[in-house]
Amino acid sequence: MNKIVVLTGAGISAESGIKTFRDSDGLWEGHDVMEVASPIGWERNKSLVLDFYNKRRSQLLNVSPNEGHKALVLLEKKYETTIITQNVDDLHERAGSKNVLHLHGELLKVRSSKNENLIYDWTDDLNLGDLCKENNQLRPHIVWFGEEVPMLDKAIEITSKADILIIIGTSMRVYPAASLIHFIKPKTLVYFIDPKPTIRENLYPNLTIIAEKASIGVVKLITKLIG
């Protein structure tokens, strides 16, 4: 059975109404990225960071998977499929995908600020005074700037075995996720789906660009792949 790896970015979730964190001016919802997505920002103003992610969590609970998310589920009927996502939402899982690896963490989970192995499901607001079982403050289960990406090695291992790599809604400029394409086998087929492609077809062997938004381009490709 062919192995398919799908790498998804903010573009696929944006169609469900989730704002992409980084605006054109480089701010995240009016905040400098280091204020709300770095260990330094966390130490400086925990209340601000918690409020920022509480708002993101609330927004997530009021949106639904789109046709792009739903179409990817169909791949599992014919192929061994893994989704590696840069997104922190759970829209792939809600659509029905069973094998999802989150590179940058998950918005609906929190973890101990001292013991990264203590992780909890969380759908409510997270506040100062919410503690793990070791009595340490809980923080968003998000990989912040300056932190290691703990799932990267696993993502590299999975990508290196792919027969087909599908890239959806990402600029391929955010590292280390953008580096995954360098670990594929020489004959791996690559499909890049984005309305404004940032790479050229002659940049990689066996690359096909589908210049469509995810809800259209993914459906077209999946229809082709599953026959």
Rank of each mutant, 00 (worst) to 15 (best):
L60V: 11
P186Y: 08
V36C: 02
I184F: 00
R22M: 03
V88L: 03
N202P: 09
D124P: 00
G41D: 05
G146C: 12
V174R: 06
K55T: 13
V5A: 14
A214F: 07
K187E: 11
D153P: 00
K114F: 10
V110Q: 03
G169T: 04
G30E: 04
R173W: 00
L91S: 12
D130Y: 00
R200E: 11
T81Y: 04
L108Q: 13
N115V: 06
D32C: 08
T81H: 06
I193S: 04
D51F: 03
L75P: 09
E134S: 12
G96L: 11
V33C: 07
D194T: 14
A95P: 09
D163Q: 01
E201H: 07
T20H: 06
P150A: 11
Y79C: 12
L207P: 04
D194E: 08
K98N: 11
E93L: 13
Q59W: 09
N117R: 08
S16D: 11
F183R: 12
D124N: 10
Q86C: 08
A177E: 07
S16Y: 00
S171F: 05
E147Y: 12
E15C: 12
I164G: 05
I226M: 10
I119L: 09
N87C: 10
S47P: 02
G169K: 05
A95L: 09
T8L: 02
T81R: 02
L74V: 10
N202Q: 13
L61P: 02
K109R: 14
G96P: 11
T223M: 08
D89Q: 06
H69C: 01
N117H: 11
T188G: 07
L103R: 02
P205V: 03
N54T: 14
I40L: 15
P140A: 04
K78R: 10
T208Q: 14
K224E: 15
N87A: 15
D89S: 09
I119K: 08
E106V: 02
A155P: 02
G68F: 01
A177M: 09
L165M: 05
L126Q: 03
T170G: 12
R200A: 13
E134W: 07
M151W: 05
F183N: 14
V6D: 04
R173T: 12
G146S: 08
I18N: 10
K161H: 13
G30R: 02
S38E: 07
V219E: 13
K154W: 00
I156L: 09
T188N: 09
L108I: 13
L103W: 03
P197E: 05
A10Q: 12
T8A: 12
N87F: 01
L128R: 05
G68W: 01
L128D: 07
G30T: 06
G146H: 07
E116W: 09
L91H: 03
G30D: 04
S171E: 14
E29S: 13
E116N: 15
N66L: 04
H104D: 01
N127S: 05
H141R: 08
V190L: 14
E157M: 08
V88E: 02
Y204A: 00
T223P: 07
